[in-house]
């Protein structure tokens, strides 16, 4: 039997790598990948604990909801990134410092 602690450790590592990517990358798409990694770490935790909820399926159900939410956020975020690229010709978040023209 695989213990819960193993799952928690793997997801902690994934979460921290995602955090590192969000803080250090200079490319909006890579930051988005970092966010996806953190979401996936959270989903892994939900699924691992969901094993102990057979009748209500709370963990697996909310893991599904989280996956769908991640899809929705990514679609909107990528649309925003494309617009930002059209406006500034770069997607480095450090160089995007004006609201208007």
């Amino acid at each position: 039997m695989i213990s819960l602690t193993d799952f928690l450790v793997v997801s902690a590592v994934l979460f921290c790598v995602g955090l590192y990517m969000i803080v250090s990358k200079q490319n909006a798409i890579q930051i988005l990948i970092g966010i996806e990694l953190m979401l996936n770490a959270a989903i892994l935790n939900l699924v691992a604990f969901g094993k102990y909820d057979r009748f209500n399926n709370g963990g697996q159900m909310f893991a599904l909801f989280a996956i769908v939410l991640a899809a929705a956020t990514t679609a909107v975020a990528l649309a925003i990134i494309l617009n930002v690229y059209k406006q500034y010709k770069t997607i480095d978040p450090g160089k995007i410092d004006k609201l208007g023209d």
Binding site: I2, F7, I29, L32, I33, E36, N40, I43, L44, V47, A48, G50, K51, G59, Q60, A63, L64, I67, V68, A70, A71, T74, A75, L78, I81, L82
Partner: peptide, 25 residues
């Protein structure tokens, strides 16, 4: 973790949807 349905959803939505979207962008 005995969540086969979530695993299939992960493959269909993440790999089939989100990553292709990221590649397009």
């Amino acid at each position: 973790a005995l969540a086969d349905f979530v695993a299939i959803t992960q493959i269909v939505i993440y790999v089939g949807g989100i990553l292709v979207l990221i590649l397009f962008a």
